[in-house]
């Protein structure tokens, strides 16, 4: 089953002098339901723009988007937790926004917080938590409505390596159990190879797809195995060619 597809998506911005600058496209991409897709690419290649178009924060200049239901989860780069709300209220926010009854909101938020191991911290405020815990809260907020598609924009980029790896495993497991389609934007190659079912590499000026591959690596993945390092190296090569251009 197809989760969503892009057909000929294009996007331009005008720079200060009024000149049109094409940042994206045309991009064609079809994603299967339940697939864990990593969008990999150097800074400024339009990965984030693609996510914003998919979530309707921005509109494409041309092209078509086909999507099943519109139930989306979104995790921002820096969490974007609401600092005046407790962890629990943050996680309850999307449920309340969708009109779920308060009692049910609380129990579902509690359930989700248990899954990310933050139930004990539900009454804390975001600034009282570490960076990793904040991103776990953001994950819980993105997944609490059990969305069909979860979009993540470099969510672990500002964390240290160890914390990042823990969260990668947690995210992968959670999305498997909820059979969520995932679009994970990153510029960290190892992160992508570790988590993805499929990796799409994007190049810049304008943003376009340069490589699209379904990974055949077994799960759980071993970062030290020769298969893993082989795939990692091949993507690294693609990446370097892109940067050289």
């Amino acid at each position: 089953m197809i989760s969503f597809s892009f057909l000929g998506i294009e996007k331009s911005y005008s720079d200060p002098s009024g000149k049109k600058l094409r940042v994206l496209g045309p991009v064609d991409l079809t994603v299967e339901s339940g697939q864990f897709l990593c969008l990999l690419g150097p800074t400024g290649c339009g990965k984030t723009t693609l996510l914003r178009i998919l979530s309707r924060l921005e509109s494409a200049d041309s092209g078509k988007i086909a999507m099943g239901s519109g139930n989306l989860g979104y995790v921002f780069q820096q969490g974007a937790l609401f600092p005046w709300m407790t962890v629990e209220s943050n996680v309850m926010f999307p449920l309340k926004a969708k009109g779920v009854k308060p009692g049910l909101c609380r129990s579902r938020a509690g359930e989700m917080l248990r899954k990310v191991g933050l139930y004990e911290f539900r009454r804390s405020f975001p600034h009282e938590l570490s960076g990793g815990m904040q991103q776990r809260t953001a994950l819980a907020r993105g997944l609490v409505t059990e969305p069909d598609i979860l979009l993540l924009d470099e969510p672990f980029a500002s964390l240290d390596t160890r914390t990042g790896i823990n969260l990668q495993e947690m995210l992968r497991k959670l999305c498997r159990s909820l059979s969520t389609t995932v679009v994970f934007v990153t510029h960290n190659i190892e992160e992508a190879v570790y988590m993805a079912d499929r990796i799409v590499v994007m190049g810049h000026r304008p943003g376009r797809i340069v490589r699209d591959e379904i990974l055949s690596l077994e799960w759980p993945r071993d970062r030290l195995s020769s298969d893993f390092t082989g795939v990692l190296l091949s993507f690294r090569q693609t990446f370097e060619e892109l940067v050289d251009q």
Binding site: L57, G73, Y74, F76, A80, F93, A97, G142, T145, L151
Partner: peptide, 10 residues
């Protein structure tokens, strides 16, 4: 980003 977060969360 707060407003956008709220929007994408429905």
């Amino acid at each position: 980003v707060y407003v956008e977060a709220a929007r994408v969360l429905g």
